[in-house]
């Protein structure tokens, strides 16, 4: 078991955003978490990555309890998150963003940089460009490349297809499959339920801070409840 989330409750001050969520991700899986706006998907990811902490409940990553571990300590244990809205460093160059992704490595390996540039040739051409001048799609690619620089065992992606044209969405999902094929376990949060269920081994539906459905990607995609609420009929 790579990740096990057990009955976590997460608050923003008085707001009870996550109300007893439990789920798990096994080695080598792609697991999708889908849900409407405000369901609490990002909050769940932020709680796993250590940017927030649950008021109760537990999280274990590779067997260790991490519910109260600070975010920066989890990176070299093999956890990486591509946050919602990409959050690349806009005032730094493309290359510097990748360097930051490798912050926990002893040194930035040329092979890793080459690997990112091979997957994303558009980034190579823009190596010295300030990241703030990249297009939305390029920024998403940079965010994903940056996350891969730390060689994560578990990669968490928060709405990687947000705001992208359909052709780019295809590309992003292709890249997710590539990362997965290369041995990375993936936890994917998406609004694009159709694509997220198609790519997933298993999936969970989050509604108002609770998990209401779970199953294989195919089962959920075929379920009436999911079709009605998330797949437009």
């Amino acid at each position: 078991m790579i990740l096990k989330v057990d009955d976590i409750h997460v608050y923003y001050g008085q707001i009870h955003a996550i109300k007893g969520v439990s789920f798990e991700v096994r080695e080598g899986e792609i697991v999708s978490l889908i849900g409407a706006n405000g369901a609490g998907k990002s909050t769940v990811l932020k709680t796993i990555s250590g940017l927030m902490h649950p008021r109760s409940g537990s999280i274990s990553f590779l067997g260790d309890p991490i519910a109260h571990t600070e975010a920066y300590k989890l990176v070299n244990r093999g956890l990486a998150q591509v946050p919602e809205g990409r959050r690349i460093f806009l005032q730094m160059t493309v290359r510097e963003n990748l360097d930051m992704g490798a912050y926990t490595q002893k040194e930035v390996s040329d092979a890793d940089i080459e690997d990112v540039f091979r997957r994303f040739p558009r980034l190579k051409e823009r190596e010295k460009q300030i990241a703030g001048t990249l297009s939305g799609g390029e920024q998403q690619m940079l965010a994903m490349g940056r996350a891969m620089m730390s060689h994560p065992k578990l990669l968490m992606l928060d709405e990687p297809s947000m705001g992208l044209a359909p052709i780019l969405v295809e590309q992003i999902f292709d890249i997710i499959r590539e990362f997965h094929a290369a041995g990375t376990t993936i936890l994917l949060v998406e609004q694009n339920a159709g694509k997220a269920l198609a790519v997933a081994d298993r999936a969970y539906v989050l509604e108002q801070g609770r998990i209401t459905l779970s199953g294989t990607g195919a089962d959920l995609a075929a379920s009436d409840a999911v079709k009605k609420a998330y797949l437009g009929g």
């Binding site: 600070e70 975010a71 920066y72 690349i88 005032q91 730094m92 510097e96 360097d99 912050y103």
Partner: peptide, 23 residues
């Protein structure tokens, strides 16, 4: 490396933490 980490923290604390930088 530290100088770049300082710029990263200055720009986006949470994103810097997610890179493994202690703010």
């Amino acid at each position: 490396r530290t100088g770049k980490a300082m710029r990263a923290v200055s720009e986006d604390r949470d994103a810097a933490e997610l890179m493994g930088i202690s703010v």
